[in-house]
Amino acid sequence: MRHTRATVMRTALRLLDELGLDGLTTRRLAQELDVQPSALYRHFGGQRELLDHMAATMVEDAFAHLARPGPGQDWAGWLAERGRALRRSLLSRRDGARLHLGARPVGTQDATSDSALEVLGEAGFSPANARRVVLVVNRYTVGWVVEEQASADRPEPGECRERADADFEYGLSAILAGLRATLGAQTR
């Protein structure tokens, strides 16, 4: 039976949710699709490439509805929403943040980053600093979700979603305040 790349991807993401990253293998995916493991190489060069595309799909889904800032919309508010969207996407999948760690950019991820770099450039960041800003927010978000997902099986007494959301927002606000100050110092 021939499967499309999209079918393979949807099945792999479903298996990620069911089995976790450690249980997701090309052999298990092939079994689920009722094909030989070698049939998967028609779509992906190996497990690393499959994982890269899975991570890219999550990022693309996260930013699909995130429009560029409109007139009067602040770059920092837009960047905060970008961080929140990434967090929601990573949390939506079992081991979503672990999957994202070390993933190589594929697909339209470069275009997504280019859009962010343009927004930040228009706000006044130099190209090098705009790149750093994107990295800081992305890495903060991924690291945060790694911790959230690692402790999900052993919640602390009294821990709740609202507290995790508030703590994430506090850190994100602190980062954005620092970035505003950095931008202000650059433009003086």
Rank of each mutant, 00 (worst) to 15 (best):
residue 182 T to Y: 15
residue 15 L to A: 03
residue 81 E to A: 09
residue 81 E to S: 06
residue 127 P to D: 04
residue 32 E to D: 06
residue 19 L to I: 06
residue 29 L to T: 03
residue 101 L to I: 11
residue 147 E to P: 00
residue 169 E to I: 05
residue 140 Y to Q: 08
residue 164 A to P: 01
residue 144 W to Y: 15
residue 126 S to C: 07
residue 140 Y to L: 15
residue 146 V to N: 05
residue 183 L to T: 09
residue 35 V to S: 02
residue 118 E to K: 08
residue 138 N to Y: 04
residue 163 R to L: 15
residue 181 A to D: 11
residue 20 G to W: 11
residue 110 D to H: 08
residue 62 A to V: 07
residue 81 E to V: 02
residue 96 G to K: 00
residue 145 V to F: 08
residue 122 E to S: 07
residue 173 S to Q: 12
residue 102 G to T: 11
residue 31 Q to H: 14
residue 154 R to V: 13
residue 38 S to M: 15
residue 84 R to D: 05
residue 145 V to L: 10
residue 187 T to W: 06
residue 97 A to V: 11
residue 121 G to E: 05
residue 124 G to I: 09
residue 175 I to T: 09
residue 115 S to P: 00
residue 15 L to Q: 12
residue 59 V to N: 01
residue 84 R to W: 06
residue 78 W to F: 09
residue 46 G to A: 07
residue 93 R to I: 00
residue 94 R to P: 11
residue 67 A to N: 12
residue 155 P to M: 07
residue 117 L to R: 15
residue 78 W to S: 01
residue 31 Q to L: 15
residue 69 P to E: 07
residue 85 A to T: 03
residue 183 L to M: 12
residue 83 G to Y: 04
residue 30 A to E: 02
residue 93 R to N: 01
residue 170 Y to Q: 15
residue 131 R to H: 08
residue 135 L to K: 09
residue 76 A to N: 02
residue 148 E to S: 09
residue 166 A to V: 03
residue 21 L to P: 00
residue 65 H to C: 03
residue 152 A to K: 10
residue 2 R to D: 05
residue 73 Q to P: 00
residue 172 L to Q: 11
residue 136 V to P: 01
residue 133 V to K: 00
residue 95 D to K: 02
residue 136 V to H: 03
residue 75 W to Y: 11
residue 17 D to N: 15
residue 158 G to E: 06
residue 20 G to R: 08
residue 67 A to I: 02
residue 32 E to R: 13
residue 21 L to N: 00
residue 38 S to K: 11
residue 35 V to W: 04
residue 37 P to V: 01
residue 37 P to H: 04
residue 49 E to S: 06
residue 18 E to Q: 14
residue 62 A to R: 02
